[in-house]
Nucleic acid binder design. Structure first.
Lengths: 154, 154
DNA sequence: TTTACTGCAAAATGTTTGCATAAGG
DNA sequence: CCTTATGCAAACATTTTGCAGTAAA
């Protein structure tokens, strides 16, 4: 086993949402961790799992991703076009979307989080309960083969 | 005619993108203005236009929305689920998404724009050209029948 | 043993395509 | 005129559904 996490804890997590900790839910979750950089769509997850789980069905993957997202165990990521993409990382972070490669790159920035949180403390939104907010940067990679790196300027 | 805008200017705008200023493109654009609060999907636009433009086809609406968006005449709005939604207003603004009513409410906030712009001046993003960034607040209306109002706290 | 979940296939939804016809410049 | 866009219907892609059978608790 090469996952730096505890499968028992995951079963526990799933169960504590009132869900059955089925094999499918566990492997879908693990696939999401393994494919983290890809922010995969349902079909990516399905294809990733198929070799070792030949009987899993695409419909189940759809349902499982939806169920896990509804229960806050994973997050749905908005993408520029069409299909839902998913992220096992539910901690606060933003995304950078590249329209050239369709990649979604994580953008974690504590300073930004704090800036926005404190900003919204000064805004009062009447008749609305914010469950979350996110910032998305869109644009395109200059060199598709290289990484995107965010640095702080002095 | 009850539009507070200049149709000739729109034709001009369309033409200056190298596109033909067809009747369909004009009425699709106008529909988008009229349905602004709805941030409509293609089908909403189609149904809105059908009565006065009985021969317009849904396929054309899809193509037109795509063409206008590609040419920066309108904006695509990301929505929590599935289909593309559109906005004729291309000026900088953010959106509030209500998961209860599926509404998208405009959120215009100059202070926020400025805060973010100056923040990103201090971040250097290597190998990426930002074309735009947007913030989305998600959550749900407390009373679906009432408006969402954002106010500044002193 | 009961209830919730899966797999499968079919249906529904949303979007794109190809091509003959029509309209814009 | 020449080119680009439209309308239509069919194709495609993605997601959901219904239901009989299976696995979790």
């Amino acid at each position: 086993m090469h996952h730096p996490y505890n499968r028992a804890a995951l079963q526990q997590q799933i169960a504590s949402s009132g869900l059955k900790a089925t094999h499918q839910r566990i492997v879908v979750y693990e696939a999401l961790m393994e494919l983290h950089d890809k922010h995969p769509v349902a079909e990516d997850v399905f294809l990733h799992l198929k070799p070792n789980n030949p009987t899993i069905s695409l419909g189940t993957v759809y349902k499982t991703l939806d169920t896990l997202a509804e229960n806050g165990l994973i997050k749905r990521v908005l993408s520029e076009k069409g299909s839902n993409r998913y992220d096992a990382d539910t901690t606060a972070h933003n995304h950078i979307y590249c329209s050239k490669t369709k990649e979604i790159v994580d953008y974690r920035d504590e300073e930004l989080e704090e800036l926005l949180t404190s900003f919204f403390k000064k805004r009062h939104i009447e008749n609305f309960e914010i469950s979350n907010f996110f910032l998305q940067l869109s644009g395109s990679k200059v060199d598709p083969d290289k990484q995107v790196i965010i640095t702080r300027l002095k």
